[in-house]
């Protein structure tokens, strides 16, 4: 589903964030991406979502090389990827359900269908009761779950999460990871970046470890 072939990413100021990185993630696979801050986890995720372009190498998503994708096609590529961020990236001047609806609205889905799907997504993350709330009024864990609902509402085949539990206490983190496992069960490909080494080693999933832009450990396919 996701394939990196000798990918380099160099930033003008910071130097090389990724060095000769190759990896492959099968469809429906769930994997953790670990490493210290600055190891290149976020950069790797950004390359998949075409938020950044690689300096060298090739990235394939669903069999298609991203290098061949013209700029105007980028939005359509992103609609197939649900992205979850450490800081949620919610819009505070909109309600919870309006936030969750965004990917559907920008894709031009009919209003009635949007409402149905938004409620289904909020139900999945256990926030249906809060659909009219403003994100700012929610706890950090709830905000993150709104972010997750937004990422899955369009039912993308791929979900990328960048430190989704970075600001959460262990109990709330467990809830979030339980959600990810449920998406995994229904066949979504998940790649989750985290520095919570201890937790991921307790969970039986593939672990990709980055160090200074290189893939230094890969626990293999599961």
């Amino acid at each position: 589903m996701i394939r990196f072939e000798h990918v380099n990413k160099r930033y003008p100021q910071r130097g090389e964030a990724l060095k000769d990185l190759s990896l492959e993630l099968a469809a429906g696979e769930m994997a953790f991406l670990t490493g210290h801050s600055g190891a290149g986890k976020s950069t790797l995720l950004k390359l998949i979502g075409l938020i950044e372009r690689p300096s060298r190498g090739r990235i394939l998503v669903d069999g298609r090389s991203l290098g061949d994708l013209p700029r105007r096609r980028i939005p359509y590529h992103r609609r197939g990827i649900g992205m979850i961020f450490q800081d949620h990236r919610l819009l505070n001047d909109r309600t919870v359900s309006e936030n969750v609806a965004l990917p559907l609205v920008v894709a031009g889905m009919a209003r009635r269908e949007v409402g149905r799907r938004v409620r289904a997504a909020l139900d999945q993350v256990g926030l249906l009761a809060l659909e009219r709330a403003q994100p700012i009024a929610l706890s950090a864990g709830e905000q993150q779950r709104v972010g997750i609902a937004r990422a899955v509402v369009a039912r993308p085949p791929i979900i990328l999460a960048d430190e989704p539990t970075g600001n959460l206490d262990p109990d709330l983190s467990s809830e979030i990871y339980a959600l990810f496992e449920r998406f995994h069960e229904v066949g979504v490909t998940l790649l989750i970046a985290t520095h919570d080494q201890e937790r991921v080693s307790r969970m039986a999933y593939r672990i990709l470890r980055l160090h200074q832009g290189r893939l230094v450990a890969d626990s293999g396919n599961w």
């Binding site: 359509y76 590529h77 609609r79 990917p103 894709a107 369009a154 085949p157 069960e185």
Partner: peptide
Amino acid sequence: MTRRRFQPVNRRRP
């Protein structure tokens, strides 16, 4: 839960 293929919304233009 049953395993099923997820269909992205309007991922490709016709």
